[in-house]
């Protein structure tokens, strides 16, 4: 006499709360990674945007006179930090020359350079080779002005609106498109 083999009951799968927690965390991480992938890694938000620009009083490059930022109140100021040793500054140099020649005659926009951690010889050597800026530059020999503006590295450009408030900031070489976009922001923020 043979007996039928007994069927072994499968242990019942129980879904516990921590299963949901684990799935929830995995979904959250996936969303964070997806959001991170779409982010521009070069963009670092500046806490200075939307705040009044630091008013400096610095010696002008190649001249004995000083320049104050507040001298240009009522105009949009495009403040560009540059140095002769900065390789990326060479890339954006023609953009600054062309944009300044086109925009400054209108009288509403003023370009201003900040020659940071450089020497007069180096700065003039740079301009002699690549073309002189059609606007003044101030000297920031030690780089204190760069720290005051939270500059990471050269070049960096600040777009200051007519009220002296920083409307936008750009890290790296400027292009005509970036300059136009940031200028629009400065014109819009009053």
């Amino acid at each position: 006499m043979t007996t039928e083999p007994q069927k072994i009951a499968e242990p019942q799968k129980v879904i516990r709360w921590w299963h949901f927690a684990l799935i929830g965390v995995m979904i959250m991480m996936f969303i964070l990674f997806a959001a991170g992938l779409g982010r521009d890694t070069k963009f670092i938000p500046s806490p200075l945007v939307g705040k009044p620009a630091f008013d400096f009083d610095l010696k002008q490059l190649g001249k004995e006179s000083n320049i104050k930022l507040s001298d240009y109140k009522g105009k949009i100021v495009i403040l560009n930090f540059w140095a002769s040793w900065c390789v990326t500054c060479r890339e954006e140099h023609h953009v600054l020359l062309e944009a300044a020649n086109a925009l400054q005659p209108k009288g509403t926009v003023q370009f201003l350079g900040v020659n940071s951690k450089d020497t007069d010889k180096g700065a003039f050597g740079f301009m002699d080779k690549r073309g002189h800026f059609p606007y003044p530059s101030v000297i920031d020999r030690q780089g204190r002005m760069a720290l005051e503006y939270g500059v990471y590295g050269m070049p960096e450009t600040f777009f200051i609106n007519k009220d002296g408030v920083i409307a936008a900031k750009h890290i790296g070489a400027l292009t005509h498109k970036i300059l136009a976009d940031k200028l629009k922001q400065a014109e819009a923020v009053q």
Partner: peptide, 8 residues
């Protein structure tokens, strides 16, 4: 420094 560079 935080006011100029942020929490970074």
């Amino acid at each position: 420094f935080k006011d100029r560079y942020g929490n970074f």
